[in-house]
Structures are given as structure tokens and as C-alpha cells.
Design a protein around this nucleic acid. Structure first.
Lengths: 337, 337
DNA sequence: CTGAAAGCGCTTACAG
DNA sequence: CTGAAAGCGCTTACAG
């Protein structure tokens, strides 16, 4: 924008650079016949003055700001619920939401800028230094939802209080009288998993309950991890009387595995999940779980993305929304107490 | 486009209409100082020559074709799985997918055209005459996925062979020896529900099995319908020994209700679902269900939408993909046979 | 490698 | 209500 509020024109840049409009036009269109140092100077001025080529003005003038949401792997329930929060907030704020799977193609970030996207929201995404460099080059703001990495100040992120959630889940089991509580979790590398696990450990320690090595099993955030992990726990010499699962899918798998060997939930084994997706309500028995405010997290991510797109700098590069224990029917006092 | 392949310009239209470029410009920009009949004639020519204002050329020139996917209510598992099919096909074909909830605001279709969308995919949507009129005015192609209405030749739609699925599910139960089979379905008005129910009736009749009035219960496609409907069936004087549910959520609710009154599935009651979402695999016991090829249906809808956007006319305005019975652990021969 | 000049597509203030 | 004319932002063939 120029001081008077009109768009920057090639003439403005030409004046500032001391070259002709024709030369600036060549730089904008990537023609070859421009001296390298002239090109550099002009590019710098174009960027500083926020020049936008006519074909791209559509982005600002007509279309609502468009945010790209990227996810990895399948569109799981908890991604879907987060997405719903993003969509609802976008509708409220007049933004559009494009959804895609993360590909990591060579110029992905610059391609998104070319397509008119104003920011990216990555759902539970891993990002490498290469990703961050590509992003920096493109100037595209990124918000990571439920980050798998430790918050990095170069990236904005929205998560939930996973540690507090793990603490609450485990305290609930302890308060029912359980002492042998195991943790059947997600990927050891994922920070959300680590935080839940340390919440569990903290609660156990505070109560003076032992946590044998064998009581903490990492895995994936899948039904199968529950199906395979629970039998391994139940085969231990001192099997747990309660399992805190890293998410609802794992919990449902664990319940199924227990049932397959004739154990009843919660009479013979208590199970707590995490997320409180609709799966938790539909499980049999309905799962005691730790609610993540997935819709609200999606909304917060969208608002952050729009603010970054407008050039604002949020106060904090990472926020966490509160988790909450939801007690249903999959937990009870241990059998022999 | 002009004959030589270049874009139609205002000058082309002015020549064709026998007016000045200035007048055409006014029509394009919706200014008031144009005689009504002049405006009409110019608009007609603009449309015929496919004139695209500069701000909108971005749509064709730079961005990939963008399809809007609209859904109603929550982003349920089966919507999410369909959406995944749409996203994957879009990535393959270089299209972008915008996702939103259907609002039905006054000029929704024209607003979508203004935002550069090339077509709409509505997931399980109701459409009224008002909707169709608004669509016709906007020129935006619509593809309905899993239509709730009977196929209408003005609308393109993609569905599954619901009747055949209902038939297969019921035959499976009959072949296990069940004779008292009930149908716990979705909304009575939804054609997909009607087709499943009639497939059920056809199978029952073919086998000479009675279908008392009370054996067919409509509801919603929700867990709650199963939770509430199954007890009503089990309270009948001649309770069914098997329940064919209109979708997986209903089936899971029915299983839970049966268990709540001490019945085991499948020993005391067999239950079949419909959809084969991931919920069916995670249910306890894993559900016998009728698979809808949701990803493939999403892909077919996307391809149809892109073809319509390019002005092609698909051979048929409605296609159905095949359903398939998936036998898991929620069905067995009846107890007293 | 640079830029003056011609030209394109569009808009707009204004005369009729 | 219409259009001639001036003007804007941009591109490009070409002279230097």
C-alpha cells in the first residue's frame, strides 16, 4: 500500500529504485534481461512496499481470506472435530478453508502463496528445518495444531493442557483405589504423548504408587495399539488393574482386548481414554476420558492464522486450552481392594 | 475466449453489441446509468462470449480449479471418509477443495461463483426448488453425494447401491437361520434409507419371512436411535433375533442397548450395520456391516464436478457404486433354532 | 542491460 | 442514457 491507501504500483517502485517502469515489470515477470544487482534491489523494494501483481489482487479484493488446512495420514475423528471448529470460526469471520493432505513437495509453501492462501494450519504435523526454511522463504504464516514437537518460537501453535489431562486421568484412577495403573500411549516422540505420560507419572509419584518400566508402553494413536498393548500388560506378573490410554482409539482397543480374554470393563479392568471424540460416547461401555476442546482449538488456530495473515503478532507463539476429565462408565474401583 | 484463443475483451463485446466500450464497462461493473434493454443485451453477450473480469482471471490463470464441498450438521465419520476420497482425487487432478457448512444464505450460489468456485459438491444434502433456482441463476454445477432425494435430472448425484446392500445384509441374516429380523433405520424421508429398507423387505419376502409393522422403525442416523430403538424392538411380544441397522452408528447403539439388558451380541442378538466406517472395525464386537465405498464415491463426485465445471455433460446424471457385505463378529445363528 | 515509446484492456468524469 | 476522450497500470518490441 502507498501512504494514501492506494495499492503500490510499478511506477512507485520504479521511482523508489531509480529505474524505469519497464525494468520493474521485467523483474516482476521474472524475465532474464535484468542485471542481477538491479533485480535484487527492485525485488527488495517490491517486497518492502508489499507489491501485489494484478492477477493476485483477486485474493485481497474479491475472495475472502483463504486458509489452507493440512493434515497427515487419515482424516481421523479428532482431526474431523478440530476441522469443524476451524470451519465454524472461518464462517463466522468470513474466511474460506481449503483442506488438503500435507505433501512436502519442493516448493509447497511458495505454491500455496501463488494459489492465494494467506496462512497454513497444520494438524499434528511434524516440521523439519527444511520445512521452516521453505516457509520463511515464502513468507506464509504457519499455525500448528496439537504440535508433535516442542513449541518453537518460529512457529505458532495451539495445543491442550496434556500434562494436566494426564494428571487428572491418573488421579481419578488413584482416587478409585487403583495402585497398579499402566500407560498405553502414542508415539514416544510426540510431545502431546510425552506430556500425558508425564502427567501420569507425576500423579503416580505424588501418591507413592510404583511405575515399573513395563507399565509404560508407547505405540501409535490407533485402535490396534490398544488391541495389542493391553494383552501385553495383562500378561505381566503384576498386571495393572487400570489402564490410562493415550487416546480414545487406544482405549477402545484395550477394552476390546480385555473383553476378548473374558475380563469385564470396568469391573475387572478400568480404562481411561483421551480426546473425548464421539467414539468415547459410543464405546461400550462409554469411556471415561479426558476431553480436549477440539472445536475450540480449531477456532483458536483459525483466529491466530488470520491475525498472522494480517501481519499482526500474537502475544504468545503457543497457547494451550484446558482439558477436562469426563467420567463415564469405563472406570470403577479395583476388584480386590 | 475469442476464436483465436485469446480472452474476450470489452472491445469484442462492444463491437458485437454495437455500443461503446465505456457502456460495456458500466454493465460489467453494475453501474446504474445504462438503459435496461442495453444492459440485458450486453449481459447476454458477455455470458455468451464467456467474458471474465480481470479480478476473476486469477481463477483460471493461476489457481487450480476450486471445488466447494458443503455438508450439513456434524462432520461425521462417513462424511470425513467421503471427504478424504474427494481430497485424494483433487490432489491427483490438481484441484483444490474448500470445505464449509451449507448455509442457504440468499445468494449462496452466486457468492460461490464470485469467490471463484467452479462447482459444488453437497454431501447428503436436501435441495429445494429454491435451491435449484438459485443454482440455475448462478450457472454453478452441483453434484450431490448420497442424495436424500430421488435423483432429479437437473442435479448430478453419486450414491451407492443401497437396495442391493439391504438385500445382502438381510440375506446374510436369513442364511444364518434368522426369521425374526427387524430394521432399525434412518429418516423415513431419506431415499438411501428407503432403499436399504426395501432391500430388507425384498429379502424377507423372497424367503417368506414375516415383517410385522413393528419390525420397521425409522429414526435418525445416530447412535441414540440405536440406543432407544433396540429396547423397543426387544420389548415386543415376538422380539427379533436379529437387527439390521440403517448405519453403523445405529448398530453400535443397538449393541450397547442389548448389552445393557444382559443380552450378548451375537449369541443372543445379531446386529448388522451399514457404511463400514472405521467405527465398525472398532466396535465391540466388530460389526458385520455393508460397506459403502465412501472414498471411491468421493472421488467419483469430484471427477464429475470437474467435468461439469469444464462444460462437459456426463452420460448419466446419477451413478451408484457397489456396496459389499463385510462379515465380522456381530452376527451368528439365532439361539433357539 | 536499460528505458522511451507504443500499445492493450480497462475505468471514469463529463459533454451532449 | 451514451460515448469520446483522458488516463491508469501494465507489457513488450526494439533502439541504444
Amino acid at each position: 500500500m502507498r501512504p494514501n491507501g492506494r495499492r503500490t504500483t510499478l511506477a512507485d517502485i520504479a521511482r523508489a529504485a531509480g529505474v524505469s517502469v519497464a525494468t520493474v515489470s521485467k523483474v516482476v515477470n521474472g524475465r532474464g534481461d535484468v542485471a542481477p544487482h538491479t533485480r535484487t534491489r527492485v525485488q527488495e523494494l517490491l517486497h518492502r512496499h508489499d507489491y501485489l501483481a494484478p492477477v493476485f489482487r483477486h485474493t485481497e479484493a474479491v475472495a475472502s481470506p483463504t486458509i489452507e488446512v493440512q493434515f497427515k495420514g487419515g482424516l481421523k475423528l479428532y482431526v474431523a472435530e478440530t476441522l469443524e471448529g476451524i470451519i465454524d470460526s472461518a464462517a463466522e469471520l468470513g474466511a474460506s478453508v481449503v483442506i488438503s493432505k500435507a505433501t512436502g513437495a519442493p516448493h509447497w509453501a511458495r505454491d500455496l502463496v501463488s494459489a492465494g492462501r494467506r496462512a497454513v494450519i497444520a494438524v499434528t504435523s511434524v516440521y523439519t528445518t527444511a520445512h521452516l526454511n521453505e516457509l520463511a522463504r515464502s513468507g506464509l504464516p504457519l499455525v500448528v495444531l496439537d504440535p508433535l514437537h516442542l513449541p518453537d518460537s518460529r512457529v505458532h501453535s495451539v495445543g491442550a493442557t496434556n500434562f494436566a489431562g494426564g494428571l487428572a486421568a491418573t488421579r481419578h484412577l488413584l482416587s478409585l483405589g487403583h495402585r497398579r495403573v499402566a500407560y498405553l500411549g502414542g508415539p514416544a516422540m510426540a510431545v502431546c504423548n510425552q506430556a500425558r505420560m508425564h502427567g501420569y507419572r507425576a500423579a503416580m509419584e505424588a501418591e507413592g504408587a510404583r511405575v515399573p518400566e513395563t507399565y509404560v508402553r508407547p505405540g501409535e494413536f490407533t485402535h490396534e495399539t490398544g488391541l495389542l498393548g493391553a494383552p501385553a500388560l495383562l500378561d505381566l506378573e503384576e498386571p495393572p488393574t487400570a489402564v490410562f490410554a493415550g487416546n480414545d482409539e487406544i482405549a477402545v482397543g484395550a477394552v476390546e482386548a480385555a473383553r476378548a480374554r473374558g475380563l469385564r470393563v470396568p469391573e475387572d479392568l478400568s480404562v481411561v481414554g483421551f480426546d473425548d471424540t464421539s467414539l468415547a460416547r459410543m464405546a461400550s461401555p462409554p469411556l471415561t476420558t479426558v476431553r480436549q476442546p477440539l472445536r475450540e482449538m480449531g477456532g483458536a488456530a483459525l483466529r491466530t492464522a488470520l491475525r498472522l495473515a494480517d501481519g499482526e503478532k500474537p502475544e504468545s507463539h503457543h497457547i494451550e486450552l484446558a482439558t477436562e476429565l469426563v467420567v463415564r462408565a469405563s472406570t470403577a474401583p479395583p476388584r480386590r481392594w
